[in-house]
């Protein structure tokens, strides 16, 4: 999802009778910029929504609002195992990858943020290196390797490369969160009789929860949106995810374009992301550590 919400200019400013001309021109500039950003982000989404409700015949009719509404496209995609199975694969693979990435990244990030150990900067640099590695260059070697190892066209075959790119992202985001947590809390827990593991689970992890949720969302979106690995490392319904499956959609006849179905599928796979963000929005913006130390 690329919908960006920009804070709207405060109305109070415009209403102020003493508003000077510079104030007004600034307000105008901000309003213009905001409007452009919102329009640019929202129009493709609305367009997709519109296409998904059009009948195949009315798709090229150049009306933004459909003349004839139909649910045919949605019925169509849910009627084929190509899409339903792919949806199941997408959900399963993305959730497992996210869970593993957050679990492993939180431990790694904790170590990076809190412990002094030799080779730490190398490790962090390496993580950064991996996260900017061009994914496409891995496709060929992985394709061959996975076929040798029997991982081709399996869930782990996708989960592993997703972890490779999800972990650096997670380690980076989470170590920033862990650094924010006062170290005294951990010392206090240790003096209170906690083992390092208990201190982490009972004190540090609950406080890092907003960070973990943020990381989970980021990693989930990354896995959910992937096309390169999904199209290259799968060959059947067994593990093909939705972005890849959409490429296999076919029209009603050999000559019809499956635009309606593609639009419907795109709308469907956007929904979990929207729900995910809406549901956890409040946790992401959290001041949970307030009050830990002198305030």
């Amino acid at each position: 999802m690329s919908t960006v919400t920009v804070p709207a200019p405060r109305a109070g400013r415009a209403a102020r009778p003493t508003g000077s001309s510079t104030d007004n021109s600034r307000l105008l500039a901000w309003t213009t910029v905001n409007t452009v950003i919102i329009v640019v982000s929202i129009v493709p989404v609305l367009w997709l929504l519109s296409l998904s409700f059009k009948t195949p015949a009315s798709i090229p009719d150049s009306h933004f609002i459909p003349r004839h509404w139909t649910l045919e496209n949605y019925r169509g995609i849910f009627g084929t195992s190509l899409f339903t199975r792919a949806l199941l694969n997408s959900i399963g693979i993305a959730l497992i990858s996210t869970f593993l990435a957050v679990l492993l990244a939180s431990m790694a990030a904790y170590a990076v943020a809190r412990l002094r150990f030799p080779g730490k900067t190398v490790l962090v640099g390496f993580a950064l290196l991996i996260s900017v590695f061009p994914q496409i260059s891995l496709v060929n070697p992985l394709f061959n390797l996975w076929r040798e190892l029997g991982l081709f066209d399996t869930w782990p075959g996708l989960i592993i490369p997703y972890l490779t790119f999800g972990l650096p992202l997670g380690i980076y985001t989470l170590s920033a969160f862990f650094r924010e947590i006062p170290w005294d809390l951990e010392k206090a827990a240790q003096v209170d009789g906690a083992t390092p593991y208990q201190a982490f689970v009972k004190v540090i992890a609950p406080l890092a929860a907003p960070g973990m949720v943020t990381t989970a969302i980021l990693v989930f979106i990354q896995c959910w949106n992937d096309f390169v690995f999904a199209i290259s490392l799968t060959s059947t319904n067994r593990s093909r995810t939705v972005p890849a499956a959409i490429a296999f959609f076919s029209g009603a006849s050999q000559f019809a374009q499956p635009i309606g179905s593609i639009a419907a599928a795109a709308v469907i796979i956007t929904i979990p992301i929207i729900l995910f963000v809406l549901f956890f929005q409040r946790r992401i913006v959290a001041g949970l550590t307030s009050g830990a130390v002198k305030g």
Binding site: P182, D184, A188, A189, V191, L207, A292, V293, K294
Partner: peptide, 13 residues
């Protein structure tokens, strides 16, 4: 042993 920290280090949650 019990310790009181300068920052108090109370568990905020």
């Amino acid at each position: 042993i019990a310790m009181v920290f300068q920052s108090y280090a109370l568990y905020p949650h």
